[in-house]
Structure formats: structure tokens, C-alpha cells
Design a protein around this nucleic acid. Structure first.
Lengths: 338, 338
DNA sequence: TTGTAAGCGTTATCAT
DNA sequence: ATGATAACGCTTACAA
């Protein structure tokens, strides 16, 4: 079933069918209807490969996600879902490529064989070989997170430094004077992973600025680590009355440890963080947190990408988000010292 | 950069380049090396659209996931990750299509425009219009879960009835005589959603067979519902000493309610379930559960699909999994009646 | 208002 | 062992 067959059965030329479909040339209403009738009857749809070959674009974008090994965070999942959504709205298909820092087959395939018109790169590192690769290939791309030199490219990022600053401000305003930061894992920080590093910087800056004492604790991305981390905080720093966190995966364990310690939240201990809304609401009591706007980021990313695809020479765009903190039930006035 | 350019620079014809690359015709070692050198120098990769047009296949499979609205369960996520993995190993790309029961643009596009060679359909309903659609289109597909009449097609499913039966057996063996089932939501059951319906059937069968009392509780897919559900069980049925569950998303709430009730698990209350290993291990204490083998299912699904693509007339394959129950820390002997 | 034809980059059939 | 060439199905300049 191809355009020629439709043309034959409608008694017109292939080009007329093409134009009837695209509307790029006037077609008399009578023939248009005749063609449409045949198309409906046979259920014809133009072949994507032929169209891609001819037009030089695939109407498909690539979404490069972290490899399956490490489980995706909810924030990342929400982002993926958001990209699917935004792409669907723009009638774009999404080719998923799980790939780590170095090039792997899937990443190479979709980028070099012209399977996609552009790429959204998640979880980039400060110095990311894939970015260089895409630049060399001259393939439009947008990154989630910034590289070390993000000037000339399109990216969207969350200002973790500012957000942790706001958490500290909020807690200090409530009278807390000894505040812990539950950060991501030590390895992640050491490897220069943006969100973790910037959380650190923001925490140091804010505690200094506010004149409160800050204690930073690295924590792996799982419930067990969160539990151990809170136990460590309570044991080593009995003067700490509040914590800020960017580690959403640790939250279930954080909650468990607090529950078991007998401390009431927020009466005995306050906690504020940066997390996907899902985790904030699963927390008990619900977590005062800057909700990561994954949907918005995804929509913006698709937007930026389609712009770059349409006009590769236009100035790249950047967007640094600072979502507001949603006040929920996990923060309150500092208790009397324990 | 195309095959003609490579041919010119190597001083051979395009067909020779093609054959050098595919190995489908003998090419003298000398010219092969010359060609390879040029290819390496220029970084040439064949254009996927041209190849797809010519060969009539895309080397891409479609993965139809539930729409972004409802969040995916961990089981589903693991499955998606597993498909990506298996597809990557087979050098296949994966086009993601979030689509509900009725046809939507994305599903229509990838299936009718020949963007994919075949489709994996997740979360099908007992009577699913997409299945009929794919059959009519004559596009190879594999379903996860069975329709009402699954005979003539390839599918992979988990035997929830048998698994819940095993949970009940295990609990009955431990002396429990009053057992609750925390099922999925009432709506899901009413709509004929396979896993929920079969959990129900398996529970009725097993409690009858073992001569124990069974109480079924529907429960929405979130922590709050899980919490409320356990509270309802403890309140309305004080004689219940154990529960079986297929609702992994409710587990965090189940745990919270048990913790708050003061019941020790497993000393005062036992719980066994069917869940992704992630949830089982996040549970506290770790959950005795049949771990859903998402990876294996995904690998099998890709396998079945590639078989159907290679030979559409071969007999369809089916695979009904009954993974073993992993004994962890949430089940123990029945306590004295409360 | 419509038709003709070239060409997108491959692969595979026929020659040589 | 290699080359010429005809498709694959579509879009779009160019003609009429």
C-alpha cells in the first residue's frame, strides 16, 4: 500500500495525493474528497522511512537516559514521562537510548545513522564525552544539567545551590541553629556530579550567611542508607534539630529512622528538601520541599530541542529553574535543645 | 556523507562498499581494507532511513507503555529497562509509545507508518482494541499479560493466581488461620484487569483448599491507600494474623500502618506478597515475596518478538511464569489470638 | 488545477 | 572480484 496505489485508484497522480495530504498545494475539493475516500477505505499511511529519506528528517527525537544498571530516580522518571508527553503533543516519536558516559552502540546508532533529528541528554557529567560527540556530529541537542562550560549550548537545569539555600533559610527562620545536610553519595560528589556538588556549595554558603552550624552527611541513593544516615546524625550530633536533603531515594529510610527514634516531626525535628512531589507526599508527615518541576523541564527541553532542530544557528537557550518550596508538614519551630 | 562518497574516495563502486560492509559478497582483502580506511577516516555510517526503505524493515521495535498519567509501577519500570537492555543486545532500537486502551496518535503512527518491525504491548486488558488493531495490520506483536482469548498469539504473563496460592500456602503452613488479601483497586478488579482478577481467584481457591478464612480488601495503588487498608483490616478483623498482597505500590503505607499499630512483624503479624524485588527489599522487615522476574520477562518478550518478526507464520509462543517465593523476614509462625 | 520526473541513500540483481 | 543499475515510497521543483 503506497502513494502510487492511492493515486491509481483515485485516478490522479502521486503528487496530487501527496499535495492533498500535505496541503502544500491547492487541490480541488472534488478530487481531495475522492482521494480521501480511497485513503480511508484502504487505511493508507505514508511510509515513514521513505518520507525521512526524502525530507532528511525523521520526526523522531532521541532521549538518552542513564543505563538500566542504576535505577532511575522518580525525578528522572517523571522527566522521561514528561518528555514522552511533550513529544507526543508535537507529533514527535521518541527513541530511547540507555547509555552511560562513554559511547555505546545504541547512542552511536541513533546519532550517527540519522535515526533522530535531535537528542535530549539526561544526567550529563561536568565533562561529558557525549556532548563533544554530538557537537562534532553537528546534531542538535539539549542537556539536562550543565557541563563545566555550558555557554554555547542549550540546557535546562535546577539550581540546587539556591534551593538548598532556601531550605536553610526556612529552617533558620524557624529558629534552628544546627542543621544537617543529607546529600547524595560521597562518590557522586567526588565525581563532580552537578546536583550533589551544588547542593554542597549552596549549603556551605547558606549556613555561613545565616550564621548557623551546618553538618554535611553524604548518603547513598537508597532507603537503607537514609536510615543509617539519620541514625548517624542523631548519634553524632545531638544538637542538630533539622535537616535539609536532596536525596529523594533515601527519604523512606529517613522517615523510618525518625519514626523509630521517637522524635516527632516536626515538633522534635524538622526536615526540608528538594524532591519529586511524589516522594514529598509519600513522606510522613508530608515533606516541606522544593518540588522538582519535571514536567515543565521536560516540556522546555522538547521546546528547546525543536527550536534547535528548526534553526541550528539560532542562539542556544538556557533555563535555570528555582522552583518554590511547598510548605507541608515536616517543618516547624526549633524545639528546646535536647 | 553517503555510500557513494565512500565509493568514490576508495575508487570502487557503491555496491562494493555495501558488500564490504555487509559481507554478503566476497570482496578482496585489499579493497576491503582500503574501503574501511576511508570509512574510518570520514566516520561514515549508513543512513537508517534509506536502509529501512530498501530493506523493508527498520531494526526498531515499539514498546507500548501505559500512558504517563498513572505512574508506572516498579515492576513495569523494571520491565521497560529490561526491554531496553535486551533490545540493545540484539542491536534493536526501541521506540516508546505511551498509549491507553484506544488508539492514540503515537500508537497509530508507529504501527501504521512502518516505523517499527514489531511491538511489545504492556498492560493489556482482557479485551484490548490494540490487539485487534495489530492483528488487522498484520504487525508482529507480543503482549505482556493475556487477553481473554490468548490462544493464537505470543504472550508472556505471570501466574498471579498460583503465586497468591503459594503465599496462602506458606502462611497456612505457619499456622495462620485468618488471612487477608490486599488486592489492587476495586476499579481495576471490576474492569477485568488480569493480575487483580487472578489474584482474587487464586486467593479464593487457596483459602478454600486450605480451609482457612480469607478476607479480601481492595486497595488503590499508593501508600496512603495501603495505610488505610491495613488499618481497616486490623479494625474490622482483629482475628486476622497475616496478609498476602499483590499491591506493591501500597507497601510503604502497609509498613507504616503496621509499624504504628505496634504490631511486630513477623512476631505479631505476617505478610507475604508478589512484588518487584526493589519493594520487597525496601520493606521493613524485608518482605517474603515472589519476586516478579521483570528482566527475564523482558528478555523473553524481545525474543518472542524477534522470532515473530523473522517468521510471522511460525507458531506463536506463550510463557506463563511462576517465580518462586523468596523467603525473607516478614513471615513467621502465627501468634496466639489477639 | 494537475501531471512528470528527479532524487533522497541503500541493497541486490544482473552483467562483466 | 567488481561495476552498473533498478528499485524501495515519498516530496517537490518544473511543466502544462
Amino acid at each position: 500500500m503506497n502513494i502510487g496505489e492511492i493515486a491509481r485508484r483515485s485516478g490522479v497522480s502521486p503528487s496530487t495525493v501527496s499535495y492533498a495530504l500535505s496541503g502544500k498545494r491547492a487541490v480541488s475539493e472534488a478530487t481531495r474528497q475522492r482521494i480521501q475516500a480511497v485513503i480511508d477505505e484502504l487505511g493508507y499511511r505514508p511510509n515513514a522511512a521513505a518520507r525521512a529519506l526524502r525530507e532528511g528528517r525523521t520526526r523522531t527525537i532521541g532521549l538518552v537516559i542513564p543505563p538500566a544498571r542504576g535505577r532511575l530516580t522518580f525525578m528522572q522518571l517523571d522527566f522521561v514521562a514528561g518528555v514522552m508527553d511533550a513529544a507526543a503533543r508535537a507529533d514527535l516519536d521518541v527513541l530511547l537510548s540507555p547509555s552511560g558516559g562513554d559511547h555505546d552502540r545504541s547512542f552511536e546508532r541513533i546519532t550517527t545513522e540519522h535515526r533522530v533529528d535531535g537528542v535530549i541528554l539526561m544526567e550529563i557529567r561536568l565533562d561529558d564525552p557525549r556532548v563533544t560527540r554530538l557537537q562534532r556530529l553537528n546534531l542538535p541537542f539539549v542537556t539536562i544539567g550543565r557541563t563545566a562550560r555550558p555557554e554555547g549550548m542549550s540546557w535546562i537545569d535546577v539550581d540546587f545551590a539556591a534551593l538548598i539555600g532556601r531550605c536553610v533559610d526556612h529552617l533558620a527562620d524557624l529558629g534552628h541553629r544546627h542543621i544537617a545536610l543529607i546529600n547524595r553519595s560521597a562518590e557522586l560528589i567526588a565525581s563532580g556530579y552537578g546536583p550533589a556538588c551544588r547542593a554542597h556549595e549552596g549549603f556551605v554558603a547558606a549556613t555561613t550567611r545565616r550564621g548557623v552550624e551546618g553538618f554535611e552527611y553524604p548518603c547513598a541513593d537508597d532507603a537503607q542508607a537514609g536510615e543509617a544516615c539519620v541514625e548517624a546524625i542523631l548519634r553524632s550530633r545531638p544538637d542538630v534539630t533539622a535537616a535539609a536533603t536532596v536525596n529523594e531515594a533515601a527519604l523512606p529510610g529517613v522517615q523510618r529512622a525518625l519514626m523509630r527514634s521517637g522524635l516527632q516531626v516536626p515538633r522534635g525535628f524538622s526536615i526540608a528538601g528538594v524532591a519529586a512531589r511524589f516522594w514529598a507526599e509519600q513522606f510522613h508527615p508530608t515533606l516541606t520541599a522544593a518540588d522538582l518541576p519535571a514536567q515543565e523541564m521536560a516540556a522546555t527541553a522538547v521546546d528547546f530541542l525543536t527550536e534547535r532542530i528548526a534553526d541550528p544557528d539560532a542562539a542556544p537557550k538556557q533555563h535555570l529553574l528555582v522552583p518554590p518550596i511547598s510548605l507541608r508538614d515536616s517543618t516547624g519551630p526549633a524545639p528546646a535543645p535536647r
